[in-house]
Design a protein around this nucleic acid. Sequence first.
DNA 1: TTGTATGCGTTATCAC
DNA 2: GTGATAACGCATACAA
Lengths: 334, 334
Amino acid sequence: MDVKIVDVALKAKVSPTTVSRVLNNNPLVKSKTREKVLRVIEELQYVPNAAAKNLRQQRTMTIGIIVPDVRVSYYTDLVKGIQTKAYAEKYKIVICDTNNDRVIESEYLKLLSDRSVDGMILVASMLTNSEVQEIVDRGYAVGVIGRSIQNSKVLNVHTDNVKSAKEAVNHLIEQGHRDIAFLSGYPNAMDSYDRLEGYIKALKEHEIPFNPSYVESGNFNETGGYEAMLRLWDKGLKFTAVFSANDEMALGVYRACKERGISIPRDLAVVGVDNDRVSQYLSPTLSTVNQPKFQMGFTLAEKLINRLNDEEIEQERVTVLESELIVRHSSVKA
Amino acid sequence: MDVKIVDVALKAKVSPTTVSRVLNNNPLVKSKTREKVLRVIEELQYVPNAAAKNLRQQRTMTIGIIVPDVRVSYYTDLVKGIQTKAYAEKYKIVICDTNNDRVIESEYLKLLSDRSVDGMILVASMLTNSEVQEIVDRGYAVGVIGRSIQNSKVLNVHTDNVKSAKEAVNHLIEQGHRDIAFLSGYPNAMDSYDRLEGYIKALKEHEIPFNPSYVESGNFNETGGYEAMLRLWDKGLKFTAVFSANDEMALGVYRACKERGISIPRDLAVVGVDNDRVSQYLSPTLSTVNQPKFQMGFTLAEKLINRLNDEEIEQERVTVLESELIVRHSSVKA
DNA sequence: TTGTATGCGTTATCAC
DNA sequence: GTGATAACGCATACAA
């Protein structure tokens, strides 16, 4: 089988312990010995066995990430941020794609709770609080993005969704709109909830009555956004603008409009959230609230790793990053 | 620490061996014993330790995937296919994003060669043949997408790139174009090479002389495509159509055209490859060669897993799947 | 500065 | 049907 530490030890005429010390940069080793060992390691192409190391050290230097769908650029931008930090800190990442399925998500959680990861990052998770709680209780470091959690240990990074949603809706109102629909995401997603709150606040401030009929859920995905639009129209509602809780659903809005011959922004103004990569390629380009996705992932990974390295760093459990409205063509009449 | 197999054994008044048998569905166990053990496992919320299991069994039920950039939908569609099959077969996946950097890719390869995975899938790899060879020699099952490899053991899935490139260029010629530029990807990528070949063949068949000046490399990414276009124009070349070896680079073409006030398809016809998700949202919509990305990933994972389960299944080392030209608006004048 | 002995938690082998 | 024991490959406590 593979070459192992004793093979190196024998050839270098030292003990396995010494080889281990060299591998782990223990400064006690005499530099001459170190060189000799390193030479043999090179010669034999020795690579330490991960399973043995993990078992012995009770840690795997691996972070698990559970995301709804790796094809959605919002999630992959987060992943990219996470993995950039993880890589810099010598951590590996395991990615689990739940396909937007809460059952699969539960199974993955179980799968990861076999100590194959040291910590987990749950993105837009649909798990129950008690499921998350249990993982924390088992001693895993946990971070979440896109959901709230009542646990005082779970790390979290988000933007001020209430504020940015308010800004987005204010922008629409300033463009002269008063009948504004809202497409929400998963009901239990914090992001979704907060954006609804911002939407309502903006209306209130302009003394526009809030009508719940104008709110439809699109589950954060393209198809959901498409179907939500059809439902809104089928109710016979009149509205001249729509605020979509994310850009993915806005894609569905575009599709629905195309089918029904409705012109954006002439007949319908659209604003999304995320600044998804696609949004700049749409026609018209989509006005949206930029989320610092890479930075969010990076920051959360940083905190998680700090905790794993149990450095006694004073760090906030929750980080709030800045988002900003990007006005493009979908919300401004020519 | 965690509850372990002996804790279960003690509480269930059996030996660890029996617990292990229950966990691994060994039929020898008396059903009454099995039930008792399962009850205790449930009570104690026991989850077997992965590292110990991996060490003992010399396998991890994990597949490593190395991709250039998880933000690119071509790659994530492949990943989705791989992970769907892997998940069904109880395999986990580790994803490594090289950020299009061959040095990082090498490091990841090293990282994964610590037996933390049983097999690897390399996507659009920039590794040398000998690097790949070494991994194979170490006993890892290896599959590749988007590169050729001289090794008789490496699994591969691809489409007929020569044929589909020829089709795409024929389509442009049929639209009346004779001066057609070609944007290639990485020089050593098989996909890139084959698409160039198809491009040349199509020209030859229509007795259009092949001029190497019309070929520029864009390294398969948006920026590369953009810069390649500028280089082509700066050479003072005249051409009315461009065939881009993938859709990502076509995005760069769109950007360059926008900047220079060149209208697609009126002044320049464009055809890409991949049927990237973005391509249908572009304006004009992008004509492209559809690649069955999900199926490619799925199929490769299937073969890899067959090999890992060392079933003596007779299977082809190389699979060729069908691709098809999708004509949209970027290549047809109104 | 280096080496010896032990154990991490599981499963495979063999005996009962 | 079930159990005792060894071994997977490494890092650590302790000894020298």
